[in-house]
């Protein structure tokens, strides 16, 4: 089973992924996450904007998925901390995200993720996160 299949298998069993309605399109070690628009993702009805928490959850999940794809770990990474910058209002449209592992250490990794809508170079939000890699204890 390829790493991509393992990731898809893992994601399909995570309730929050289904609650958000997100999916991951994977080609080798390259992944784009997609969050199709749904009314339940809205945070402010008067301006029809996506909820910052929904965007944050999507970005954190994207960062974890990319890390899982690249790291040699059995279990999903655990979040140490995240910082989310909200750059533009998330409109009532599909949201996309990609993540890059900036530093892969033995025990920890740093990951950047960015989300956008109509235009790739107009990001809606950006995340920087540090994650704990839960490797099998060396004998």
């Amino acid at each position: 089973m390829s790493r991509a299949d393992e990731l898809q298998g893992f994601l399909s069993g995570v309730p929050i992924v289904e609650t958000l309605g997100m999916r991951c399109e994977i080609k080798g070690d390259d992944m784009t996450a997609v969050l199709p628009f749904q009314d339940k993702l809205i945070g402010n009805f008067t301006i029809k904007a996506l909820h910052g928490g929904a965007i944050g959850t999507f970005l954190e999940m994207t960062a974890m998925a990319q890390l899982f794809l690249e790291a040699d770990v059995e279990r999903p990474p655990r979040t140490i901390n995240i910082t989310v910058d909200y750059l533009r209002q998330g409109r009532a449209e599909d949201l996309f995200a990609r993540a890059t592992v900036i530093k892969m250490g033995r025990r920890m990794a740093s990951v950047r993720a960015e989300a956008w809508q109509a235009e790739r170079n107009k990001p809606v939000a950006a995340l920087l996160g540090h994650f704990l890699l839960r490797r099998e204890d060396p004998a």
Partner: peptide
């Protein structure tokens, strides 16, 4: 709530739910 679980093995709610709560 079970539909918010992020780690099915441990049965723990996803961090993003805490992001939503604290942001709001």
């Amino acid at each position: 709530k079970e539909h918010l679980i992020g780690d099915p093995e441990a049965g723990v709610i996803h961090g993003g739910v805490i992001t939503t709560l604290l942001d709001n």
